[in-house]
């Protein structure tokens, strides 16, 4: 029964109450499921490598390292410092390779090219390779995300 001045009937109100509460219950049960279906993997904030493995690098030489489950590349620059790049193509996520004879990084998927500093020079890649910070601490070479402070 709908009283002339009321917005809705008591029946509809109670129905809305039940429906709303059921929705809340459903949300309470489904939101953990939503969290469940995406596993929590995060890239490491920093990776510690033994300096000995990389000390023998000549200037301009490149050696790979593991950045979590992604490939990384370390290159010794002219001033003796290390340049760290994430070896994942910025186009569609393929892993790139270093071609020493050309001094360039190459992505085979769509023929993308990067120079020795990771800048995208040819092909579809829209951005340069991601750069990471490096630091030498005692016997270790530490590679970390830019701006990360332990």
């Amino acid at each position: 029964m709908r009283i002339p001045d009321s917005l809705f009937t008591r029946r509809r109100f109670l129905g809305a109450l039940i429906g709303g509460w059921l929705l809340a219950l459903a949300a309470a049960v489904l939101s953990p499921l939503r969290k469940f279906i995406i596993p929590p993997y995060r890239e490491p904030d920093e990776v510690t490598l033994p300096l000995a493995d990389y000390a023998s690098l000549g200037v301009g030489e490149v050696k790979p390292f593991a950045w979590g489950i992604k490939p990384g590349f370390l290159r010794k620059t002219a001033d003796g410092a290390y340049l760290a790049l994430v070896g994942v193509c910025t186009h569609l996520d393929c892993n790139v390779t270093w071609l020493p004879e050309r001094s360039k990084f190459f992505c085979a998927c769509h023929e993308g090219w990067y120079d020795e500093n990771g800048r995208n020079i040819a092909g579809p890649p829209p951005k340069p390779l991601r750069r990471l910070e490096t630091a030498v601490e005692a016997d270790n070479l530490v590679v970390r995300k830019p701006g990360f402070v332990r």
């Binding site: 929590p40 995060r42 490491p44 904030d45 489950i69």
Partner: peptide
Amino acid sequence: TLAPRPVPKQELR
């Protein structure tokens, strides 16, 4: 559960 796990060194998983 969501904190980053320490990644073992040189582990190419």
